[in-house]
Design a protein around this nucleic acid. Structure first.
Length: 576
RNA sequence: GCGCCCGUAGCUCAGUUGGAUAGAGCGCUGGCCUUCUAAGCCGGUGGUCGCAGGUUCGACUCCUGCCGGGCGCGCCA
């Protein structure tokens, strides 16, 4: 057992049964970290009614039955009935030793691994990736890493916008400029310009508009030449997305792409099936599902339009086909949609419909992993000065450039090659961390200055703590990590923090909230820095046993920081 | 009109699922470098947790109603 809160919970649970009887086997010991002791257990107050006793006598009865063993150093009742626990340094030392020997740093795998589909990133073909894609991409990727680390089979799904009416104008524009020229334009990341040019002609030139309409029809009907052009657009875009993912350190691969076009051939049969079964009804000429509990402005049932009155299909149809595919063909137990909060009603309806259709039933579940918007420092939607959306790659470049300047100033001795690599890790880390460190449901302010600083809850602070730890090993000369002993308060605080790693990973698995992990990294980095400050390691007056122990703690600390940051998708530099 | 989300220090944010005295960073301010990275550490300043009720031994947390801001509500995703 590495996590002391779990070990302690077991001890308290047993004591509770011994004190109050087997009926109380189901109570949550409510073990929490405490600022007055190592841990506190808060169950006594809640038990008063059920046990027909006052909280304090309950607490005392439980304490009387606590088997301290090698875990508990001291336990006492405080206030209305809090149990305050101090753990034995020897137990903590052993747990830390076990964590250090464990390549997962003490984090367990799920006892019930699932197949989990994560839909995230989902850019549009022939369009630029902008800040709007940042959150889905970064949050989704972190969750994929966490769930995979927990031992689940994670299936990433990049639900590309690679089909539909815009492709009429895009293909016509492609034909206008010539395939070669188009490929060049698109390859260098001028997706935005390409799309805008097509759009401009579509809006201004009626002949072009008409050609585009006809082109949509030939695309839908599978015209070989049209499909060829379409394929080219998709391929070039996928290459571009791939380059952005590589730049950002995103684990999404080309083969994870499963866009709207994939579902196209499933839509007509799906609509036919729903219509035939009577589960969908015609309303105003459109084939609709009416999931329970949703109303429009007039108080009428709100539809999901499976087939439009013109016979075409919209996003609702595609999403229905997709959730069915994910639950059925992919065999998902859990389907996650990392999509902005404004679409929450749509997903609520989608899930409700999937339940009504019998596709989605417990223990299977679908969850909308919603997130807020990225705002500028003016608290409005993040845009450039001229009002354009900001390209993702420009954002990254700016952050890396800024990081490079800061590092050059703080550590002028770093060789240029090392420095630029460090700047890349720090700059990219800053952007991702800023996104992952606050509650995803809230909007957040994009402030490059703040992000790339190394103060407070930032990637740079954690990366710096890691780099300092690594620096110690470079200077250790013969000294090696050895038996861990936990004596100094700073050592104890650090070890308690480090041993909580597995619990935090589990929490993120449940809540799908990466900011819990970011908060944890910060807590570890704080504890580590305080330890570093108060507990000398390589200084001459440190005895060999203490030095070896502290080196072991530095090793464990740096491993946990690196692993936790990795789960956020952030790299660590060996030097800074 | 209905529904969803947000409201915590001057600013940017946490708050471990209802626990003890609401915490960080920035800002302002006082200390700490002849030895492991001062990008740091230790302290001070700063709060009617939007407002009002309710539930509870206990509420920033749960419920109800308001106020303020954002978003959504039939063939776009």
């Amino acid at each position: 057992m590495i996590d002391p809160s779990l070990a302690l919970a077991a001890v308290v649970r047993k004591a509770t049964i011994d004190a109050l009887g087997a009926d109380f086997a189901d109570v949550d010991p409510a073990v929490r970290r405490s600022d007055r002791a190592d841990f506190q257990a808060d169950l006594a107050m809640g038990l008063a009614r059920r046990a027909k006793m006052a909280p304090r006598p309950i607490a005392e009865a439980i304490v009387a039955k606590i088997e301290q063993g090698d875990l508990v150093e001291k336990v006492e009742v405080a206030g209305p009935g809090f149990l305050n626990f101090t753990l034995r340094g020897s137990w903590l030392a052993e747990a830390a030793t076990a964590a250090l020997a464990d390549e997962r740093s003490g984090a367990t795998r799920s006892e019930a691994p699932e197949t989990i589909v994560i839909d995230y990133s989902s850019p549009n073909v022939a369009k630029e990736m902008h800040v709007g894609h940042l959150r889905s991409t970064v949050i989704g990727d972190s969750l994929a890493r966490v769930l995979q680390f927990r031992g689940h089979e994670v299936i990433r799904q990049n639900h590309l916008g690679d089909w539909g009416t815009p492709f009429g104008m895009l293909i016509e524009h492609l034909l206008d400029v010539g395939a070669e020229r188009a490929e060049e334009d698109l390859a260098v990341g001028e997706l935005g310009a390409f799309y805008k040019a097509a759009r401009a002609k579509f809006d201004a030139d009626p002949a072009f508009t008409e050609r585009s309409r006809r082109r949509v029809v030939s695309l839908q009907s599978g015209d070989a030449e049209t499909l060829d052009r379409w394929r080219m657009l998709v391929e070039v875009s996928k290459k571009y997305f791939d380059s952005v993912y590589r730049k950002l350190g995103i684990t999404m691969k080309a083969e994870d792409a499963c866009g709207e076009s994939f579902y196209d051939r499933r839509l007509a049969p799906l609509a036919g099936e729903l219509e035939g079964s009577g589960k969908a009804t015609i309303s105003d000429g459109a084939l609709c599902l009416f999931p329970a509990g949703f109303q429009n402005k007039e108080g009428q049932p709100l539809p999901m339009i499976v087939r439009k009155s013109d016979g075409g299909f919209g996003y609702a149809a595609t999403d229905l086909a997709a959730i069915r595919y994910r639950l059925g063909d992919l065999g998902a137990n859990r389907v996650l949609y990392v999509v902005g909060a404004p679409q929450s009603q749509h997903f609520a309806m989608l899930f409700e419909a999937a339940k009504a259709l019998g596709w989605l039933a417990a223990p299977r579940r679908a969850e909308h992993v919603a997130f807020g918007s990225v705002l500028g420092t003016d608290k409005r939607m993040f845009k450039t000065r001229s009002g354009d959306t900001v390209r993702l790659v420009d954002l990254v470049d700016a952050a890396v450039e800024r990081a490079d300047a800061v590092i050059g100033e703080k550590n002028p001795d770093l060789e240029p090659a090392v420095r630029s690599e460090v700047a890349r890790k720090v700059g990219v880390g800053a952007i991702k961390y800023a996104d992952l460190s606050s509650d995803r449901i809230k909007d957040y302010v994009f402030d490059l200055e703040r992000m790339v600083s190394f103060e407070g809850n930032t990637a740079g602070y954690a990366q710096y703590a890691y780099a300092r730890a690594r620096s110690i090993f470079r200077k250790a000369e013969g000294a090696k990590p050895g038996a861990i002993q936990v004596t100094e308060p700073a050592e104890r605080a650090l070890v308690l923090e480090l041993l909580a790693f597995g619990g935090v990973v589990k929490l993120v698995e449940e809540t799908l909230e990466p900011h819990r992990l970011a908060g944890y990294v910060y807590a570890v980095a704080l504890a580590f820095t305080a330890f570093y400050e108060k507990c000398p390691i390589l200084k001459s007056d440190v005895d060999p046993a203490t030095r070896a122990s502290r080196l072991a703690l530095v090793e464990l600390g740096s491993k946990v920081i690196a692993r936790a940051l990795d789960l956020l998708g952030i790299e660590v530099p060996e030097r800074m």
